[in-house]
Every structure is written in C-alpha cells, then in structure tokens.
Nucleic acid binder design. Structure first.
Lengths: 179, 179
DNA sequence: CGAATGGGTTCAGTGAACGAACCGACAGTG
DNA sequence: CACTGTCGGTTCGTTCACTGAACCCATTCG
C-alpha cells in the first residue's frame, strides 16, 4: 500500500487484500472496470481523478493481474484495460460495500442489481431473490434507480445511466466519429 | 473522506460507503471491533497504528455511528468502543474482502470462519456450507488456520489466535489485575 | 515517594494526492 | 501544408494526510 507503509504486521487476509486494493480510488477503478469502462479517458472523466493517480492505479492493477492492458487498435496505438477473473472476483466485496452504502450511508436507491436470467433482485448475499441462485458477475444487470441523476454531463455517466449488463464494454458514442 | 477531497462527483453507493470507511486503517479498525477488540490500547498494539491516526479513526467512526463510546469504569474514567449494528452491517463486505485475500492475495489459510450452531464453514456468499443458512455475525466463530503465527508477542494477537466467537469482547488477560 | 498504565494531544518530517501544464503521435479539416 | 482536436500519458509545484516520537494528565500499584 502506498500511504507511507503497508500493513505488514497484520496476519490477516483482509489486510492483505487492502494492501492490493485499499488505496484511494483503487476500488472505484475496479468498480468502473466491472461496469464495463475500459479506456483511459473514460475512467478519467467518469471518476474525476487526477491523471497521475489514474496512471499509477492502472499500472498497479495491471501488475497485480486485476486488469489486463490490451491493444485494441494499431494506428494510432490505443490500449484498453480489461478486468480479469482476479478482478471480477472482487465483485462480492464491491456488492457488499454497495449494499452497505445504500442502507447506511445515503439511503438512496441510485442503482440496483438484477439477475439477467429471471429479473429478480440480487440480495444482500449475492443470491437472486426470485430464483435463489448465486448470481455470477456476468449475469448481473445494473439498473438505474429513481434517485440517479437522469441527465449527467459526461458520456460515460450517460452510458451508465441506462440498464447495462456488467463486464460488457461501454459504448460511449462520440469516441470514433466514423460510427 | 480525508485525502484531499471526497468522492463527491460519484453517484454511487460504493463511493458513499468508501467516503465513510475508505480511509487507511479504517476497515481494519472495524474488523478488530467485530473481532471483539474494544479498548484504545488493544487497537493500538494489535494494529501498530500511530496514536494520532487511531484517535482520529475512533472519533470519526463514533461520529458515524459505527462504533459507540461507552464508559465501563469511573475511577479512573475508562471508555471502550463497541461496534454498533451499523458497524456489524459491514461484516459481509469484510468477509468478502477476506475471501478475496485468501484466494488472490496470499493463498494462506490464516483464519477460517465457521457457523457456531453446526460447525460448518461459512462460504463465499456468507452461508453455512453444512446447513445452508445465511449466518449472522454473532453466530460466526473465528478459527485460526494452520498458517497463523502460533506465538505472537502482544496479548491481543494471542487472544485472537484462539477460536473465538465474533462480537464477544476480547479478554486480554493482564488488563485488570483484580480478575 | 517513584514507576506504570490508559487514553489521549502536539509537533516536525515525509510522502502521496491534487490540479494544471506540457508532450508526442496521429486524424480530420481548410 | 498548417491548424485543431483526441488519446494516453508525464512532469511539476503545492497542499495535506500519515508517521513516529515526545509529551501530558489522572490514577493506581509497589
């Protein structure tokens, strides 16, 4: 961890996890990656994070095998950051934090998560309220709630204010004019 | 959050949660509180955290209603910090982080969590592997694993290296000589 | 009396985060 | 060909949180 020292004295898997993803912004970058954000500029405008910090987090997460840097076009060379299996394994932790935030930090219903197969809501333990199965990340659909701002400025927030299956790449629209 | 700015631009319950518990050390303080640590000095020696930071975290967590400051003796005046319902509600997130740390950050089995009623292991979704029920925090027993240091120096680590039910106060032994 | 304990506060030094500026490669426009 | 814009960064000065050590006060033990 970057802040001065790590949690070396802690014999604890929570501390080990926080050494990897406990820095400021890191979990939000992973969250965005699971939501389908892949490009440097999309992370930048959506998070409002300083460029130097974003570069550092993307590099660290890539080194840790949580993201994978992938060239998606050659001229000009452009890379995207795709979340790996190791990264999607953080989804239960993020979902639990999201749940806690909803119930204990703002009380708003900004987004909800639903099971793609049957439409049931994903409950506090990650299982579908309707069919009871433990829903894998790829089968989760993020649905905007009533308290989510309906007219955000940046294209990334706009793309994330529509229902969207997790892990699928984000279509930010005005990226390549040829579309 | 304390580092320069908060995550104000983020319309996201994960960001709201991280504003409250996302600072360095904060989640480890909550973890210790759930493990049964209650006293300033016990947090101090177990976490190896600077005093000023610990004071700040305890004050902030108390203001947020995650811990409750409670006077347990009058002469001399002594307070303890007890985790509230709002604090124990963070357990699913901590358990998920712990799970990720075990599988993706160190591969060691430092501790495991078991269902007090039937002894079954608490699985990745917080349910008991044996009887299938979603195990509430108070019914979780923390069991030291094979890779945990068996002879730690400080009394808090020693108390936590024996099987122990979560939320129950820690007995650190040489605290009050009259016992 | 002197030493130890519990629960802090204060302070100087360091290092990370912040924001703004800059940069290089390329693409499209006039 | 020059101009403008986009993408993915790096560099740099300032600010601010974390760190470790020292200090403090009330009380209690020997």
């Amino acid at each position: 961890m970057a802040l001065g020292k790590d949690y070396a004295s802690q014999e604890c898997s929570i501390a080990r996890a926080l050494e990897v993803v406990g820095e400021r912004w890191t979990l939000l970058v992973v969250r965005d990656a699971i939501y389908g954000v892949r490009r440097y500029n999309d992370f930048l405008v959506h998070l409002g994070i300083p460029r130097a910090v974003l570069s550092d987090r993307l590099r660290t997460l890539t080194e840790q095998g949580i993201l994978e840097k992938r060239r998606y076009q050659e001229t000009p060379p452009r890379d995207e950051y795709v979340v790996t299996e190791r990264g999607t394994a953080l989804w239960p932790a993020l979902r639990a934090l999201s749940q806690w935030g909803r119930e204990h930090a703002d009380a708003g219903r900004l987004r909800s998560f639903r099971h793609a197969d049957c439409g049931g809501e994903v409950g506090p333990y990650g299982t579908c309220a309707d069919c009871g199965t433990a829903v894998p990340v790829a089968d989760v659909v993020m649905v905007p709630g009533p308290e989510l701002d309906t007219s955000p400025q940046d294209p990334v927030s706009r793309a994330l204010s529509r229902p969207k299956r997790l892990l699928e790449p984000l279509e930010t629209g005005p990226a390549r004019l040829a579309d």
